[in-house]
Amino acid sequence: MRATTTAAPATAARQKWMRTLALAEPADLAAAWQDWQPKPEVRRIRGPEIGLVMVRGRIDAGGARFNLGEATVARATVHLHGEALRSDVLGISYVLGTDLEHAELAAVFDGLLVDPDLHDRVLAEVVAPLARTQAERDERRRRDARSTRVDFFTVAREHA
């Protein structure tokens, strides 16, 4: 039972880049924005602001839901306008933690990704490198964890 909701292809693609932007190191995102040209006009629609979400788990891991505890979340909605864009777009972000700049930049890049003319360029120049860094980190953690695999054997005679 995955937490991921079954989604239409367009939704699934947006979820995927939103995940990468949320998991990105804020400094990497800031550097990507620094390098991005031409910059669109960014108008804040909502936030960036900090709030809470109640994290839910499931009883016995697979049963009914229960409220585990809250987590801090920063969110932003921005309106983008610029010559490079086919039309004005809205970018939205929700990111764990209290980093307002992270939320704002994630929303800006989400908006640029929504634009059909810029989509491929943002994906290649911003999202792909971030995803690569994250995959490398994950693989490092998995390699370390794998080194702690253990085979216990019982000393008493075993019964089949």
Binding site: G51, M54, R58, N67, E70
Partner: peptide, 21 residues
């Protein structure tokens, strides 16, 4: 936490979703 607004509830987390440490 009492000073912050509540945005809502998360989907239930899936504890078998990612490879555990």
């Amino acid at each position: 936490r009492t000073t912050l607004p509540r945005f809502g509830y998360t989907c239930a987390i899936d504890t078998s979703g990612l490879a555990p440490q």
